[in-house]
Simulated scan of single mutants.
Amino acid sequence: MKQFSIRSIVFMKKTIPILFVLTLSLMLTGCNFIEEKKAEGIIKNYYQAIIDEDYEKAFEQLHLYDYDSKTEDSKLAEVTTLSDEETKAFYLKKVDVLKEQNYKLKDFEIVDVEYEDGHSFWHHIKLEVEQNGQKFKWNEVAEIYEGKLLIGEKDDSFAKYRDGKMDFEIEELKKS
């Protein structure tokens, strides 16, 4: 039987806890890394679909929920009370407002991932939008809620016409 030297025993006593901590931290961050990559995939699919004007594909990425624009009350925890056919029709009606306003998403970039509690996270998105020939740069946040994309508007007042808010009174906008 091979004997260990004092030096190798001391080395093992120091190395095992370090390896344990490293393994544990890799396991924890690995889970978030996988979820982050899934979220980035959904985010990229959504924004690219908007750029490509493939609104049905964009619609499929979204978490759909009822929203009262008068009280600004969102029922995020519940899915919309509208039927599948009604949600799609409502979404396409919202998209028509974007088209009437000559709104086009030209480019997007995921610029940051923000963590709240080590587990919950959301992505910061920088948008390049063109409306009636004018270019704008907007920022918004996006997160995954129950496997679907949830857009949190920040700057873009037209985001509500491409996000998952449902069952509210669509404003009739006049072209500027």
Rank of each mutant, 00 (worst) to 15 (best):
A142C: 12
D66P: 02
I110Y: 05
T81M: 06
I42C: 03
T80V: 04
K135F: 01
E146A: 10
V113N: 06
V113K: 07
L64H: 06
E128L: 14
D73W: 05
D66N: 07
D112H: 15
K70W: 05
L62F: 01
K148Y: 09
H119L: 02
A142M: 15
K99L: 11
T71I: 08
V113L: 05
S83I: 09
K99P: 01
Y46W: 02
D52V: 10
D117H: 14
E146V: 04
S120V: 08
Y103C: 08
L98V: 02
I144W: 07
K126F: 01
D117W: 14
A89H: 08
L64F: 05
D54G: 04
N139P: 03
Y65G: 00
N132K: 14
Q61L: 04
V97F: 04
K75P: 00
D107L: 01
D52A: 14
K57F: 08
W138C: 10
K94N: 09
V113G: 00
K99Q: 12
K75L: 08
I125H: 06
D107V: 06
D107N: 13
V95N: 06
L82C: 01
Y46D: 01
E53G: 04
E60N: 14
H123S: 12
G133S: 09
E143K: 13
E146D: 12
L76G: 12
A77Y: 11
D84H: 10
A49Y: 09
D66I: 00
E130K: 15
D112W: 13
K104C: 01
E100W: 06
L82Q: 09
V97C: 05
K57P: 02
K94I: 00
L82F: 09
Q48L: 09
Q134G: 02
E143M: 10
E130N: 14
V95G: 07
T80K: 06
